[in-house]
Write a protein that binds this DNA or RNA. Sequence first.
DNA 1: CAATGTGAACAGTTTCACAGCT
DNA 2: AGCTGTGAAACTGTTCACATTG
Lengths: 242, 242
Amino acid sequence: MAPERQRSGVIPEPTVARLPIYQRIAAELARTGQATVSSEQLAALAGVTAAKVRKDLAHLGKLGTRGTGYDAAQLVRGISEVMGADQDWPVVIVGIGNLGRALINARGFLARGYRLVGLVDTDTRILGTEISGHTVVRFDELPARLSEKVAIGIIATPASAAQDAADQLVALGAGSLLNFAPTVLMTPPHIRVRYVDLSIELQVLSHFALTDHSDAGAMSSVGIQPIAAPWAPAAGEHGARS
Amino acid sequence: MAPERQRSGVIPEPTVARLPIYQRIAAELARTGQATVSSEQLAALAGVTAAKVRKDLAHLGKLGTRGTGYDAAQLVRGISEVMGADQDWPVVIVGIGNLGRALINARGFLARGYRLVGLVDTDTRILGTEISGHTVVRFDELPARLSEKVAIGIIATPASAAQDAADQLVALGAGSLLNFAPTVLMTPPHIRVRYVDLSIELQVLSHFALTDHSDAGAMSSVGIQPIAAPWAPAAGEHGARS
DNA sequence: CAATGTGAACAGTTTCACAGCT
DNA sequence: AGCTGTGAAACTGTTCACATTG
């Protein structure tokens, strides 16, 4: 029945990082009553080219209809499926400072499939505190409170504590780590790690501010900046590898 | 005198995103008394290949010495220079929730060159609050408090407020935006935008957890995982484009 | 006939291998 | 002898152009 899903090969990482963006747009359009989306429209709203959208979506199998476009609702489901948002991913957050709290509270961050199962910190001032239905504990108290393996560990500690956090998370079964601390982690080879280093983001911006030096729009790389619009979507990619 | 700096062409974005990592490592080594670093050592600590390190650093001009390696202190300075960390970048943060506060407090985030000049929010509960020597104000009060153009605007608001924040920041002269809200921003073509979407990071991890499915270390892409170590650095890239 | 899906050309990065300094 | 700097090859991802299909 289902119109041929889950195409064969692996999906390239840049594509994987763009799929959630298409999904968000498709969901919003579906919500406002639009049943179908063209690659052109999706491209305009996502800040990429239409060809890229089609290549990206082709990885999901054929869920478009020629002459018509993609079914918005079907797109949302199809992308959920490949992203694994359907499954259940027990998440532990280490480091309950401002960043940790921001992650806990951010709407849409721990939604759909990503289930918070533990909060870890060492600061005695917040140990024992209850946040979002979870008590903040030290690492050695965590196993007693877990009834399952951790799938994803989020490291929101200072750099000095990050490696230890990674070790402990791996010991609890985490196969994936999301590291916000500015350090390169040493991990066994089968562990997937993604880095989000906020200070690097700033530095990359200032570097290009320097080299673009007022030569408006010269930003060689992408930047589709579609046809006739006073303002065009600013295209962006989300990187990192394991 | 200075040994030929600032090579001609543009530096590829993936390289730009790695330079701060090398810098951090070089700084740490210099601090512990090591005067010179080889590409091999830098590679092992950064989780990349030695060839990549050499190609990357070659963009800075020739600051290595054959047979010896790179001078650690010189590396730190050279990278500061190309990243623009020497210059002065007035930064405004919009959205003083947990994330905004995390950015303000994170050691190393607003250091060296990135100078906080304004905090904006609309929540009456925190308006007027003083944080890090800056009073949180509404956007319309900000111009009166600024004595210069904004260089970089950081958007740490909910998605619903992000586009407005972007518009206002651009009006204040910001040429670069760092957007943490899960939305594609519409901006004039000469504005550089980088996206950090936390929920996408989680989804990318779960996608690959799905497809790698226990086939340990098969992660095709990079993953140098050097020679003989029980644990190898987990390589990572930091992406996004304007 | 509009809009997808895709082979082929193109572009950007990474890896390799080694020539060239120190 | 050791280690950088760099062309050339390999690879990965993007853009183009169009045949194909509903």
